Computed example of a mutant assay.
Amino acid sequence: MKILIISTPVQAIGQGEGGGIDITLLNIINALSPLGHQFTVLAPTGSKLSADATLIEISGRLQTSVQTESASTPATMSHDSTIVSMCRYAQTHQDQFDVILNMAYDWLPIWLTTFFTTPIHHLVSMSNENQTVADAIEELNRMMPQRIAFHSHASANTFQLENPVTIIANGFEFTNFPFCKSPKQQLAWVGRISPEKGLENALEVANKVNLPLHIWGKVQSESYQQQLVEKFPEVDIHWRGFVPQQQLLKEMSQSALMLMTPSWIEAFGNNVVEANACGVPVIAYNKGGPTETVISGVTGYLVENNEDMANRVADALKLSRYHCRDSAQQRFSIEQYALKLQSWLSLNID
């Protein structure tokens, strides 16, 4: 198939701002390219893509992330917005493609689904964070349920859906994932330095267990970062910044344990699988995507709050790093992912 991907209209990809979207986009291309599928990716100006695909940079006014707004904020977009330009390009060139894959968590491409002759499929990258987007997803689920897929049942369940949905999860190429059997006595945390990612929770746990916390990720809010530094002066914090993926895996693999502490409901949580694949156990909240990636007592623990998380650190440090790695590779291989994606995207292809 010739596949056109509409990526996020919120920021350029490949710059550390996209988080899970960047990783998922690469995983999709890496999964399906070996099967002969060809990709063209629409992304905001300034994007970078280290994958076997044609990148078309789309200029325009970037959308405001729904993460920074209330759930009741209406959908707004200017005539020169990136998402409008992306959809215009997709509509104009749709005859060149067999299928369009929308990864933008935005009302417009979902609403436009029935107006295209080339099938548009939507991979929903977040849980229910905006009512306008949710309304569009729920309406499309009633009309064309096969066109929507989610990363996890937990994410899908945050919407009011009448018809069964496709769960895609995610898949990874584990060949180059490093494995460290003798880690350093340090905690790891990976994510954008932004309030919804809940870094303060990880710092609270690190303080309780008296272990250093190594933090990888793009600083999206310097004021938030400074507030954390002032609030937790006693924690041994190591700001590692945003680094290339392979470097991140190498450095993170040396940690004894990863903490996952978002304040919102993660749709999947790529970091869980990546950490486990490197042999690193993960302690996460018992909500969202991690409930379907963490096997409590085997690859980490699911907990209800920060106190429980701190109490589980000692137990998690005893878990087999080999079991963590093997579980990730068995459940989230790139080969399994490719079959799921191909089956879903082929549903409406004659």
Results as ranks from 00 to 15, higher is better:
227 Q>S: 11
259 L>E: 07
61 R>T: 07
37 H>E: 02
323 H>M: 08
85 S>Y: 06
308 D>G: 09
251 E>T: 10
280 V>G: 04
43 A>V: 01
140 L>P: 00
336 Q>R: 15
245 Q>W: 06
125 S>V: 15
34 P>D: 00
285 Y>Q: 02
99 V>C: 15
103 M>V: 05
224 Y>T: 04
303 V>T: 12
116 F>A: 08
5 I>N: 11
294 V>R: 00
180 C>F: 03
263 S>A: 12
274 E>K: 13
218 K>C: 09
165 V>F: 08
109 P>F: 02
186 Q>F: 08
25 L>Q: 10
309 M>H: 07
154 A>T: 09
80 D>P: 03
9 P>S: 02
322 Y>V: 15
108 L>T: 04
311 N>C: 09
112 L>N: 03
147 R>F: 01
311 N>Q: 15
161 L>E: 01
187 L>I: 11
73 T>M: 10
178 P>E: 11
98 D>H: 10
232 F>E: 06
300 G>R: 02
91 Q>N: 13
249 L>N: 13
225 Q>T: 01
99 V>F: 03
181 K>Y: 10
23 I>E: 11
159 F>L: 02
48 K>V: 02
6 I>S: 10
289 G>K: 09
161 L>Q: 03
110 I>T: 04
152 S>R: 02
298 V>G: 01
91 Q>M: 12
81 S>W: 00
53 A>G: 06
225 Q>L: 11
12 A>L: 05
175 T>A: 14
213 L>I: 01
244 P>Y: 13
200 E>P: 01
122 H>C: 09
188 A>R: 15
144 M>Q: 13
156 A>E: 04
169 A>W: 04
201 N>Q: 13
56 I>L: 09
241 G>Q: 05
189 W>Q: 05
11 Q>K: 11
338 A>F: 03
276 N>Y: 08
284 A>L: 12
94 Q>D: 10
319 L>S: 07
166 T>M: 07
278 C>I: 08
163 N>H: 06
287 K>W: 01
192 R>T: 04
194 S>E: 10
57 E>K: 01
231 K>N: 14
259 L>Q: 00
147 R>S: 13
100 I>L: 02
97 F>A: 13
60 G>Q: 00
59 S>V: 05
189 W>F: 08
213 L>T: 01
274 E>N: 07
106 D>P: 01
30 N>D: 14
257 L>I: 04
347 L>Q: 10
210 N>L: 08
177 F>P: 01
259 L>A: 12
233 P>Y: 04
335 E>H: 12
330 Q>F: 03
261 T>W: 00
338 A>K: 01
142 R>G: 12
95 D>E: 11
16 G>D: 04
112 L>I: 05
